[in-house]
């Protein structure tokens, strides 16, 4: 089961970094760095997406792998950052 947040992140990663429509197969805990899915500018793209899509402001100090290096980490970060982020189950 995925939340809407997770779904949107997955779609972004698939389209933007994997150039694919297959957004369901990536392991939510997989490190985006260690699997070479994301590089230096990729992180900046990711931050831009999170800010625009979830209407939040990512502080410099929050741009750390603990918050952004996996889908699961990003979902947790967003929930922590903005409890109002839609976490309904995506059915």
């Amino acid at each position: 089961m995925q939340t809407n947040t997770e779904h949107d992140i997955r779609v972004f990663i698939a389209k933007n970094f994997l150039f694919s429509d297959d957004f369901g197969t990536l392991d939510a805990e997989c490190s985006l760095l260690e699997t070479d899915i994301i590089n230096s500018i990729g992180v900046l793209e990711l931050v831009m997406f999170l800010e625009e899509h979830f209407n939040i402001k990512v502080k410099d100090a929050e741009v750390v792998p603990e918050n952004l290096d996996s889908i699961k980490a990003m979902v947790a970060y967003l929930q922590d950052k903005s409890p109002n982020v839609d976490v309904r189950t995506n059915v």
């Binding site: 230096s40 900046l44 410099d60 741009v63 750390v64 792998p65 603990e66």
Partner: peptide
């Protein structure tokens, strides 16, 4: 690369 946070 230079825009990156130290952690990254």
């Amino acid at each position: 690369l230079q825009k990156q946070s130290q952690k990254y």
